[in-house]
């Protein structure tokens, strides 16, 4: 630039904050935490933390479900909203979908004509129920103008109620092999990564993605630019609900049973993974890549503490600190920007 106007413009004084360095720094945090556990492992119990493929597999499996939810939650938070209902939606879809995935071996003694349903039926039903829950969230937020916190808090309580009411609190077990396969082996990780890849592309390269950021950055400006805010928010919450439904399916398949108390606090873990991954709670910024790393950080923490045989209570304490620290970092970044 030859124009010296730019050089002195005070608005241009603060170095622009790029998305990339934020993403890079969170990656460094992940590596740093892993290295700390590695060092402590050698120091305290004489073992390597990272050089254990079994541990790494378990670690990734543990957080895949959170990751699937977090992909939806990230989109919600980018619009400046929040979704507290995902954990309960996990339980509700797990229960209902599992009831369609039960083997008919026992029941056939009474009803000989019964056959097992193909796995696509419970999978379809599960995603549909999640989608419906998200749709209700979105409709409430868009048309009654109540804050997302309240709308999804209501769904959180009600969906949990549905999960308990559905079988009077009884677990649903005896699930078909063709269904439980989606929770076995490496499948949960594959599902997580595929979902993350899809929505990474969607957020970056589609109009839906651009509008999602625009709404979070300035809802009024987005409205004047011709974006139908109501319709768009319904889509975002419906997608988040469907992904929570998918997470419910994976949870039930992995446990080979469904229980009404599944998924408790999953919504908070998903929000934590999103926020640790650099998505700003004030909306308008955030990336799926960050959320993947945020999810990995949660995984490394859980697995690392277990590896060091640290009491699980400490885990929770430290997890809380990490979440707060991530938001503090975000606030600091925002401050530098304005």
């Amino acid at each position: 630039m030859t124009d010296n106007h730019l050089i002195y413009a005070p608005a241009a004084l603060h170095k622009p904050v790029r998305r990339l360095p934020a993403g890079m720094s969170i990656l460094l945090v992940l590596v740093g935490i892993a290295m700390i556990f590695e060092a402590l492992g050698w120091l305290l119990i004489g073992q390597s933390f990272l050089m254990n493929s079994q541990r790494l597999t378990i670690m990734i499996l543990q957080v895949s479900v959170i990751g699937i939810i977090a992909v939806g939650v990230t989109q919600v938070i980018i619009t400046g909203g929040i979704d507290l209902s995902s954990g309960s939606v996990v339980a509700m879809t797990a229960m209902i979908a599992a009831s369609f995935a039960q083997t008919s071996t026992w029941a056939r003694a009474v009803y000989p004509s019964l056959t097992d349903l193909p796995a696509l039926v419970p999978i379809g039903i599960g995603i549909a129920i999640g989608l419906l829950a998200g749709l209700i969230n979105g409709l409430l937020i868009s048309y009654t103008k109540i804050p997302p916190f309240i709308a999804t808090l209501g769904m959180m309580v009600s969906a949990r109620g549905v999960a308990r009411w559905y079988t009077n609190g009884q677990p649903v077990s005896g699930l078909e092999k063709s269904f439980t396969v989606i929770g076995s082996g490496i499948w949960p990780v594959v599902i997580f990564l595929v979902v993350a890849a899809i929505f990474h592309i969607v957020l970056r390269y589609t109009r839906y993605g651009k509008f999602t950021y625009a709404i979070g950055a300035n809802m009024q400006a987005a409205r004047v630019s011709g974006i139908n805010i109501e319709r768009h928010l319904i889509k975002v919450y419906a997608i988040a609900g469907a992904l929570a439904g998918l997470a419910g399916l994976v949870t039930a398949a992995r446990a080979q049973t469904a229980q009404a108390n599944m998924g408790i606090n999953y919504e908070l873990d998903a929000i934590a993974a999103t926020v640790i991954g650099g998505t700003s709670l004030s909306g308008g910024s955030g990336r799926i890549l960050g959320t993947i790393i945020g999810t990995a950080i949660l995984g490394v923490m859980m697995s690392g503490f277990t590896f060091l045989r640290v009491d699980s209570y400490y885990q929770e304490i430290v997890k809380g600190v990490i979440i707060v620290a991530a938001v503090v970092a975000d606030v600091y970044r925002q401050k530098k920007r304005h």
Binding site: A214, A217, N218, A221, A222, R223, V224, S285, Q334, R337
Partner: peptide
Amino acid sequence: VSGCLLSL
């Protein structure tokens, strides 16, 4: 207020 997407 209704113009810039300030963070973008």
